[in-house]
Design a protein around this nucleic acid. Structure first.
Lengths: 187, 187
DNA sequence: GTCTATACACGGATAGAC
DNA sequence: GTCTATCCGTGTATAGAC
């Protein structure tokens, strides 16, 4: 892995662990093993490097989700496959957590990949649910867009509960609960 | 409002807007109108002041929730009343957002009030749902604990989606979706 | 109780040598 | 490309005067 790559990966880790405000150039340099000069040679500064890191994390999130959504099985099975992907509940979502970062939200460039991937995710999920309704797998009372938002929110909120409790168990419960509620709409 | 009080309230606002890592003593002093000396006279330092602020925010969250839960109506109505309390979706949850703060999570004192209030909240909600099941208002397939976790998570995650999108609409959708799913279990 | 002065490390970056 | 030197403001306090 070359220096530029190590800088991006180290930044991704640090943004995940400490957020944007909590991540200093010095910490990035220490973790990546790159010097001051190196970092500013490859990137214009902290925001530039963060943009590369955030974009990649958003892309990864999308790819993982699409893999689950595009799998085989019924709609409910594919939604469940996505919600049950392996995740470290205590670490939180590497993308979602950045929505709490004031400096990220204040910078339209940094914010864009986050806005985009969540819009895509809820839209994709809503499409799946609509498909399930059309095929008769899900009943007509289910609102695809609202339900998609609720499911993604339950996932993101599951992280919050897990971190608050210091235990991954609540996360699993939230996912179970969300799927249990969804199951009720299956025919 | 005396100086001590202004310090706590200003800290609550700043923690809400910028988190713990993003909030400096200097910013607190500026917002509260208190001087350096004043702040360190009333509190031992940033963590001490933050503890007072976080505890109060947690308490406020609990009181608002309890008011909704203890209201009149069916269980589903009271849960809906809680989920539909007026909130500024774009600001996020003043307590939940702190779970993303590495320095808060690393300090057991700061973390305790957050852990406590979320444990109480999910427990209280689970109790209500169990009550609804016993009374026959909700069907037996509903798992009270898991459903309670999912509902609280949907709320917390709704904030994440709203901030990502820069719009409160997704928050409302997530809440609607969560209640729509719950409605399905009502007899 | 509040103010000013002082301290020292860190955040975030630029400049220029190699 | 990478390193070292340097810069200035901020973060987080402590000390002592009023």
């Amino acid at each position: 892995m070359d220096t530029r790559e190590r800088l991006i990966e180290s930044t991704r880790e640090l943004l995940w662990e400490r957020g944007y405000v909590g991540t200093s150039p010095k910490a990035i340099q220490a973790r990546s093993g790159a010097g001051q000069g190196s970092m500013y040679h490859h990137f214009h500064g902290k925001p530039d490097l963060a943009l590369a890191a955030i974009s990649r994390s958003a892309e990864e999130l999308r790819d993982r989700a699409e893999t689950a959504f595009a799998g085989s099985g019924t709609v409910v099975e594919r939604v469940a496959a996505y919600l049950r992907l392996e995740r470290d509940a205590l670490k939180g979502c590497p993308v979602g957590r950045l929505t709490q970062d004031p400096d990220v939200m204040a910078d339209p460039d940094l914010r864009a990949p986050i806005a985009e991937v969540f819009a895509w995710l809820t839209g994709r999920l809503a499409g799946l649910l609509a498909e399930g309704r059309t095929s008769g797998e899900l009943d007509d009372k289910l609102d695809p867009a609202a339900t998609a938002a609720a499911l993604v929110a339950a996932l993101q909120g599951g992280y919050v509960l897990a971190r608050a409790a210091g235990s991954a168990e609540v996360y699993a419960q939230a996912i179970d609960g969300a799927l249990g509620l969804l199951a009720c709409h299956a025919r």
